[in-house]
Each structure stands twice: as structure tokens, then as C-alpha cells.
Computed example of a mutant assay.
Amino acid sequence: MQPYRYTDLNEHSEWLNELGRLEARMTASLGEEVRLVAYSPETHELPSESACRAGLDD
């Protein structure tokens, strides 16, 4: 299973507002409080080929 992290929405107030509106609509419709969480898959940079092959060109 791929690891996830919280999505950084600090610079995206429009999406935070949209999530808030959707939470309010869902809460009203379902009759219980709803909180939505945004996750993104972790991205792991693979080492460059030169980092894996150190010393082979010496």
C-alpha cells in the first residue's frame, strides 16, 4: 500500500472554502457532523543513476 500524507492546502483558500461548504452540506443532509480530509500519495524521489553508480567511471 502506498503511504499518504496530508495535502498542503494552506496556499489554496478556494479549496479550503469548497471543502467547508461540502462538509456543511453533508452534515445537514446526513444529520451528523462530517469532516473531510485531503490526502496525497507520498512521492519518493529515486536517486539519480550517478548516485547509484558511484566510482564505476574511475
Rank of each mutant, 00 (worst) to 15 (best):
Q2M: 03
Q2A: 07
P3C: 02
P3L: 08
Y4L: 07
R5F: 03
R5Y: 05
R5D: 06
T7I: 02
T7M: 11
T7W: 07
D8Q: 03
D8R: 03
N10F: 05
N10L: 09
N10S: 15
N10A: 12
E11H: 05
E11C: 02
E11P: 00
H12Q: 11
H12L: 11
H12D: 09
S13D: 07
S13H: 04
S13A: 11
W15C: 01
W15I: 06
W15G: 01
L16Y: 02
N17M: 10
E18R: 05
L19R: 12
G20A: 15
R21C: 04
L22N: 05
L22V: 14
L22D: 04
E23K: 02
A24V: 05
A24Q: 15
R25D: 14
R25M: 11
R25H: 08
M26H: 03
M26Q: 09
T27D: 08
T27M: 04
T27A: 06
A28C: 08
A28M: 12
A28D: 15
L30C: 09
L30V: 07
G31E: 08
G31L: 05
G31M: 05
E32L: 04
E32P: 00
E32R: 14
E32Y: 14
E33R: 10
V34M: 09
V34Y: 05
R35F: 10
R35H: 13
R35V: 13
L36M: 14
L36F: 09
V37Y: 13
A38E: 01
Y39M: 00
Y39F: 03
S40Q: 15
P41I: 00
P41T: 03
P41H: 01
E42Q: 14
E42T: 12
T43K: 11
T43D: 07
H44Y: 13
H44R: 14
H44S: 10
E45S: 12
E45I: 06
L46S: 13
P47T: 11
P47D: 11
P47W: 11
P47C: 07
S48K: 14
S50D: 12
S50R: 12
A51S: 15
A51V: 08
A51W: 09
C52P: 00
C52Q: 12
A54N: 05
A54P: 01
A54E: 08
A54W: 05
G55L: 03
L56P: 00
L56Q: 13
D57Y: 06
D58Y: 05
